[in-house]
């Protein structure tokens, strides 16, 4: 049964759909790239939510924490590690796609994809 607790997941999915919409419907290369970023962050947000538990603490063990009590209260750190890796990968993709878009702009003088079509499709 969906409850209020499920709302963040819905928002993550909504963000994902917004990103997809930008990729499908927008004609500007820069907006397409923004769509990619939104999709990526929607997935990251989703992963973050998976690791959350109500009232949890950040998964960083300090000298003051008793390990057993800490383990009982901390949120799942693994999705956060996954997100960090996904962010790094996203950064690489973003750098490459920006370089491509700039090169395309050099060639065509526009970011409009309807004017960039030498390929048959």
């Amino acid at each position: 049964m969906p409850t209020l607790d499920h709302l963040p997941y819905l928002f993550a999915m909504l963000l994902f759909v917004i990103g997809l919409y930008a990729i499908v419907a927008k004609k500007n290369l820069v907006k397409l790239i923004l769509g990619l970023i939104v999709i990526e962050y929607a997935v990251n947000l989703f992963l973050l939510l998976l690791g959350y538990r109500g009232g949890g603490v950040a998964p960083i063990l300090t000298r003051r924490d008793a390990p057993a009590e800490f383990l009982a209260r901390t949120v799942d750190p693994l999705p956060q590690a996954l997100i960090l890796t996904a962010i790094v990968i996203g950064l690489g993709t973003l750098a490459l796609v920006t370089a491509l878009a700039l090169r395309l702009y050099d060639r065509y003088g526009t970011f409009d994809i309807t004017e960039i079509k030498k390929l048959k499709g």
Binding site: F16, E40, L47, V97, L104, Y108
Partner: peptide, 23 residues
């Protein structure tokens, strides 16, 4: 020009598919 365009298209679709895989 063609290569940049093909690569851009490939990259956008490839990134979307990667997002689905990660999901």
């Amino acid at each position: 020009s063609e290569e940049l365009e093909a690569s851009f298209k490939y990259l956008v679709l490839g990134s979307v598919s990667s997002a689905f895989i990660l999901l």
